[in-house]
Amino acid sequence: MKKLTIVFLLISFFAQAQEKVNFTEKFKKENQGKYNIEVNEVKELLQIMIAITKTGLENDDMMQQEGPYYQSVMKQFKAYEKEPIIHTFDSLLIETLINNVFLTGNGISYHFKGNQLVKSDVYIFPAGGVNGVKAVENPITKYKKELEDFAIKSDFRSFYKKHKKYYAEIIAQYEKEANVVKQWKWLEQNFDTRINAYTIYCSPLINGLNYTSEFNNNNFRLIYMSLPPLVTNSYMSSIENELFNTRVMFTEIDHNYVAKPTNEHKIQINEAFKDRNYWVNEAVQGIDAYSTPKYIFDEYMTYAVYLLYCKNHYKEADFNAAYTATDQVMDARGFTKMKEFTDKLLTVSAENEGKKIEYLYADFLAKF
């Protein structure tokens, strides 16, 4: 299968559409201080439709193509790969894989009522822009009739209902093992940013394309994440699995905290990271998604902050394992100076014990 490095992880994903959510007083009251994990029905329909496009079938980085769930998807839905709407989606993905985000990210703007898709009162057009690329129209609105027809023809709703027990198991594992509250608390101890609620949308079909955004409406800030299920690898120890899963989630969450100080120090970052060829390997597919010094810095910073978290919460041997694994992952993604970046941040943090991370930026950037 073709491998593509497509993990964008940019806080700006939905920035252009933040005004197109509607956090009512009722919504705020029901969600304040809480986190929610969901395998959303409409998003799962879109994930399945993308999975049977030619692009989805060829891309085992974007789509999780192992395990019984994927086999069940192929058994029921691959027969519909020639449908015109699947061809349309494939054309969109060929144009840019960012369209995966526009399609799945806007899935929450509708819900099923019988065989009809009904607009959400909360999420109107949640995924409107990615790294400077804008969606002119909510694609779920544009392809509403085709989505409804595909769901009926393929008997999608029965498939979703049949797998609800499995979805519940995914959610239960997150609630038991993900340490969301622990990460949330630590980040708010180390940054001034305050978030009112977290929502994690999960799909068994997600592999390498994870994304996050923050919605800010009616004095309520919500972090939105699209993530794969937690991983339990038999060849890894329990602590290794925990570190792996923590990295996947933490490096999504902390984009929303790193963004503010990064923007405040944009001038210094642009100067320190202007030599693009030094900081990234242009030969790695997907690195062009990080098109500016700020985006490059922000990606390094999110992973370095994860390692600071590990240093605060794990034994030295476990931290060292996380440090090595993170350096290897980032290098493979084209971020070749992770060790240099992290070592500088660890040094500055040790020199300023007790100081919030966002107030380390000036001293930290002075080292480059």
Rank of each mutant, 00 (worst) to 15 (best):
M330D: 04
V118L: 03
D60H: 08
T342V: 14
G334R: 00
Y257R: 02
K337H: 14
E66D: 15
T24L: 15
T104I: 15
D155V: 00
Y361K: 04
A127W: 00
I267C: 04
E25D: 15
N179P: 10
D90N: 15
I357V: 11
F220V: 03
N40F: 15
V181N: 14
T199C: 12
F273A: 04
A289K: 00
M63D: 07
F319M: 06
N210I: 12
A17G: 12
M1E: 06
V284A: 01
D254H: 09
S226R: 01
K145Y: 12
K165M: 07
T193C: 11
A259E: 14
D90Q: 06
Y323M: 11
K266P: 05
E83M: 14
S109G: 07
F125A: 01
Y80I: 02
A259G: 08
A289Q: 02
N245P: 10
E271Y: 10
N115Q: 06
G334H: 03
T141Y: 08
S237K: 06
D327R: 00
K153E: 15
Q189F: 08
Y143D: 08
M74N: 04
K142R: 10
N115L: 02
N179T: 10
L92A: 02
W184N: 13
I50A: 07
T141E: 15
Q76Y: 04
D318I: 06
N281C: 05
T212P: 05
F341M: 06
S109W: 04
K274H: 14
E282V: 05
K182T: 15
M338W: 00
F220W: 08
N320V: 10
M301D: 07
H87N: 13
I239K: 09
V42N: 10
I223N: 11
E38H: 09
Y295M: 06
K165I: 08
A362P: 06
Y361Q: 11
E351D: 11
V305C: 09
K164H: 13
G128T: 01
A283Q: 13
K294V: 11
D155R: 01
Q116G: 00
Y300G: 03
K165A: 12
Y166S: 09
M301C: 06
K294M: 12
V231T: 12
P293Q: 06
Y70H: 03
D149C: 05
P228D: 13
K260G: 03
L45A: 00
E19V: 07
T336I: 12
N99D: 10
T232P: 11
Y309S: 05
G107Y: 11
A322E: 11
K294G: 07
T96D: 09
G334N: 03
E169Q: 11
V180L: 15
Q71F: 07
T342P: 07
P261W: 02
F150M: 11
L209Y: 14
A366I: 01
L57W: 07
Q116W: 01
K294R: 09
Q173G: 10
A127V: 03
L187S: 09
E340C: 00
E146D: 13
G56D: 07
E81K: 12
P139E: 03
H163P: 07
A172G: 08
M49P: 09
K339W: 01
K176D: 15
N131M: 00
Y300A: 03
E358M: 10
A259V: 10
Q183D: 15
L205H: 03
N233S: 09
D318W: 05
N106E: 11
I239H: 07
T302V: 15
L205I: 05
S349I: 01
Y314P: 14
K29I: 09
S12L: 04
L307C: 08
